[in-house]
Each structure stands twice: as C-alpha cells, then as structure tokens.
C-alpha cells in the first residue's frame, strides 16, 4: 500500500512540473478565447454577450472562406508536397545519386534555419516588380513592363507563397527521412536489385512503405507547422492584395489587433484549433496502421 502511494507520488512528481507549466500558460488563454468568442468586445469597455453570432458571421464572410481555402492548400502542400519531396530528396542523397551529397544536404537544409521574417524579406526582393526575377525576365524578353501577375490573381496568388513554404520546410523532412533511411540495411535494396526490380519500384514499393510511420510523424509536424506560415505570409504579403493570400491566422490577427474586434478574432482562433484537430485526425485515419499514443 505504502509502496503504491510512494510510486504514485513519484509518478506525479515526474509529470506535474511539465504539466503545470503547460496548463498554466496554454489552457487559460484558450479557455479565455473560447469565452470571448461568444461576445462582442473591442478590447476594453463592456463585453456584450452575442451567443453564436461570431460563428454565424463566419459562414457569410468571404474573407474567412479565402483564408480557409488557402489554409487547406497550405496543409496539402505541406503533407503532399514537402513530405514526398523530402522523401525523394533523402532517397537520392542516400543512394548517392549525386556527387558531393553531403554538400547538397547542407545547402538544402539551410532555409529552415532562417527566420520567416528574413525569408520573407529575401523573397520579396526576388518577386517584387522591381525585384530580381522580373528584372531578369525583362532583360531576357525585352518586355519592360513584365511583372509577376500571378500575385494579382485571386485563384493563384497563394502559389508563390506555397512555393516558398516548400523551399523553406522540405529540408526538415528530408533530414528526418535521411536519418531513418540509414537504418534500413543495404541488403534489402541489394536483394531487390538481384530480383530485377527497377529503381522506381525499389523506391515506391520497398523504401516508401518502410518509412510510412516516419511519414506519419512528419505529417503531424507538417500540419501543426503549417500554421507557422503566419510569420511568412504576414511579412511577405500581409494577406494582400485584396485578401488573396489571406490565411486564417493572419485574418484572426488583423481582426483582433487592427480591427479591434476581439469577439470575432477569438472565434476565428477557436476555429483554427478545430481545423488543426480535424486535419490531424484525417491524417491519423489515413495511416491507421501506425499507433501514435
């Protein structure tokens, strides 16, 4: 009996320090946001209880839909772009398909170490109408009025940002895959080669399935990390032009800080949390075989 009690005490003494810091810092604000999401409040003065009004408003808010759409696209490019590309790059490096694989590995990893604010500055200098890329195109084509019109397209303005996200984050998944590839014995590939399997078959049918659990963890990282796109988008376009590159986090931030509509901003932040929960649960359902607990 006494033994069990002291065991429970040590159990709690291991968990509670982390748990209390976590709950103290994270849970209170989320509960506070949830409460605020049912009110109309401009950050000071009287709070007005408005029930579900803020959530109802979302359904008829075109900007919210643009943000939702762009967020879905970013999750998609994270899960189905960064991760497969990361796997492919890792495989190519692992199989030493290029000379100086180590150097390429370092170069590809570099972007992840740079803060998003800096990355945004860099790419703005590349994409802007007086930036590097339009300058190059102008001197090549002679069209002195060339600009990247994709930034002014409602449907595609988010694409260059997705490209930068791909550039920025693929490397993390590549390194994780690469490390795990090294644990797969060469003999497996050898055996497959003996049986006459092509390189594509080896990659798709043998290596990729073996790394599926790693891919799942990477997906979790990618989905929760896809909201880091806030920093990049906020500094690169601020959601503009005309809300075309809006994502939910940027819209929530502007609603709260710039428009001083704390109620609606809080409702948006609750929806963001639900969105990530849903995305992760979908991923989990898709990769049932992996037990993540």
């Amino acid at each position: 009996m006494r033994n069990l009690r002291s065991k429970k005490l040590s159990y709690l003494s291991f968990i509670l320090p982390a748990f209390l810091i976590y709950v103290g810092i994270m849970v209170f604000p989320v509960v506070f946001s949830l409460a605020l999401s049912f009110t109309k409040w401009k950050g000071f003065g009287p709070m007005e209880f408005v029930g579900l009004d803020n959530y109802v408003r979302m359904f008829s808010d075109p900007v919210f839909y643009i943000g939702l759409r762009n967020n879905i696209l970013i999750v998609l490019v994270s899960v189905f772009g960064q991760i497969p590309l990361g796997l492919l790059l890792a495989y190519m490096l692992h199989r030493k398909m290029v000379r100086g694989a180590k150097k390429f590995e370092v170069l590809i990893f570099l972007p992840i170490t740079i803060s998003s604010v800096i990355v945004a500055q860099l790419w703005n200098r590349v994409f802007s109408p007086i930036g590097i890329l339009p300058s190059i195109v102008r001197s090549l084509t002679g069209n002195s009025e060339y600009i990247m019109t994709i930034f002014e397209s409602k449907a595609y303005a988010i694409v260059p940002i997705m490209f930068v996200l791909l550039w920025q984050h693929t490397s993390l998944y590549m390194v994780i895959f690469l490390a795990n590839l090294q644990r797969i014995p060469d003999s497996i590939i050898e055996a497959a080669q003996m049986e006459g399997a092509s390189e594509g078959t080896i990659f798709l049918k043998i290596i990729a399935p073996m790394l599926a659990p790693v891919a799942f963890i990477n997906s979790i990282l990618a989905i929760s990390g896809s909201f880091k796109s806030f920093d990049l988008i906020y500094s690169m376009t601020g959601g503009g032009p005309a809300h075309y590159t809006e994502v939910m986090a940027v819209y929530m931030y502007d609603t709260t800080f710039v428009y001083q509509n704390y109620g609606y901003g809080s409702a948006l932040s609750i929806i963001i949390i639900l969105f990530i929960v849903a995305a992760i649960m979908l991923t989990r359902a898709a990769t049932k075989k992996f037990n993540f607990d």
């Binding site: 065991k7 159990y11 810092i25 994270m26 989320v30 506070f32 946001s33 806030f230 931030y253 949390i273």
Partner: peptide
C-alpha cells in the same frame, strides 16, 4: 507507470500540438 490518469495527461499534451501562438497571445499577455 501503471496509472490510469496517464491517458488523460498524454491526451492533454497532444492537444497542445494544435494550439497556435497567435490564438493565445492577448489573454496570455493579460
């Protein structure tokens, strides 16, 4: 450790993966 409450604690930590900084910054500041 063989205690039932660990399911609760684990779940609570997992939930934290979904909370973004921007959702909590104002209440946290207050």
């Amino acid at each position: 450790f063989p205690f039932a409450s660990k399911k609760f604690f684990t779940g609570a930590f997992a939930l934290g993966l979904m909370i973004t900084v921007h959702a909590v910054i104002i209440p946290l500041f207050l």
